[in-house]
Design a protein around this nucleic acid. Sequence first.
DNA 1: ATGTCCATCATCGATGGA
Length: 311
Amino acid sequence: MRIATFNVNGIGSRLPALLQWLEEKQPDVACLQELKAPQEKFPLEAIRAAGYEAIWHGQKSWNGVAILAKGTMPQEIGRGLPGDPEDEQSRYIEAVVHDVVIACLYLPNGNPAPGPKFDYKLKWFERLIRRGEQLLATGAKVVMAGDFNVMPTELDVYKPERWVDDALFRPETREAFHRLVAQGWTDALRTLHPGEKIYTFWDYFRNAYGRDAGLRIDHLLLSPALAPALQAAGVDRDVRGREKPSDHAPTWIELDLAAAGQGKAAAAPDAVPVKATAARKTAARKTAAKPAVDSPTAAPARRKTKSEPAA
DNA sequence: ATGTCCATCATCGATGGA
C-alpha cells in the first residue's frame, strides 16, 4: 500500500500536474494540502476519472485538505482539528482507507515570528499533539501525513543558520514536533534514510530548486501498530522540476500491511471521533438546502459526543 | 530586503499569504 502526501499549492492551477503524477505513481492514498479552493470548486470529476474517490475540506483562497483513495471511498472520521471551536481554517481531515486511519494535515506556516500567526501555529500544534495522543491510545494503524511546516533537525535545511528565526525552524516549533514524535510515532522518511539529505520543498525564489536549496517539511508519521509495515519511503522530486509545479514535491511511503499484523483500525473511528467544529457546522448549514456536493460521509451525522474524550 | 507564484476583486493592477 502506497500512501503519499502532496502540498499542491492550488488544486485549480495544479490539476494537470496532479493528474500526471497520479497516473504515473498510482498511490493508493494521496493526502493533499493547500487546495486554495472553496468546497464547490474541487475538481471531483477529473479526480474520479483518474480512478480516485475523495473527501475534502475546502476554503476560499487559503488552506484546504483532501484525502484521495484509489478505487475506494475514504470513510471519513471527521474534519477540523478538535480543541478550538473558533478555528475556521480548513487544515485537517481524517478517514479510514483499507483499515488504516489517515490523518491529513496542513500545519500553519506561522510567519512572521514572533506574532499572532506564530502563536496560532503553536496552539494548533498543541491540539495536534492532543489528537495524536488520542489516536495512539486506540492502538490503531494510523498515518499522520501532511505539510507540517517544520524542519525537524538541521539536516532538514539547506542552510540551518539562515532559518533559526523562521517559524518553520524556531526552537519552539522543533520542540513541539519532537514532542509529537516522542509519543510513539515513526518519522518514516528519516527512519529509513538516517543521515541522508532529503528535501520535500523548494522555494520559488532564487532558483531554489536548481540550487537544491530545499527543506524537509512534509512528513509521514506512523503509529506503532503500523511502523513494522514500513517498506520504503521517498520523494518524487522530479515533479518539482516540471511545468507550473507546486513548490512541494510528493512524499510517499510503501507499506506491507501483512507485516503489520492485526491492528485495531476498525475501532478507531467510533472510539475517537473528530469533534464537529464551528466551521463544519456552518458549512453543513450553508449546504443544507441542496444535496451535499462532496461525500455522503461529510455530513455531521457521524458525530458522537457521547464517546468523545475530554478536551 | 530580496525573490516567485497564487487567488482574489472595493479587477486587468493592486494585495496578502506562503
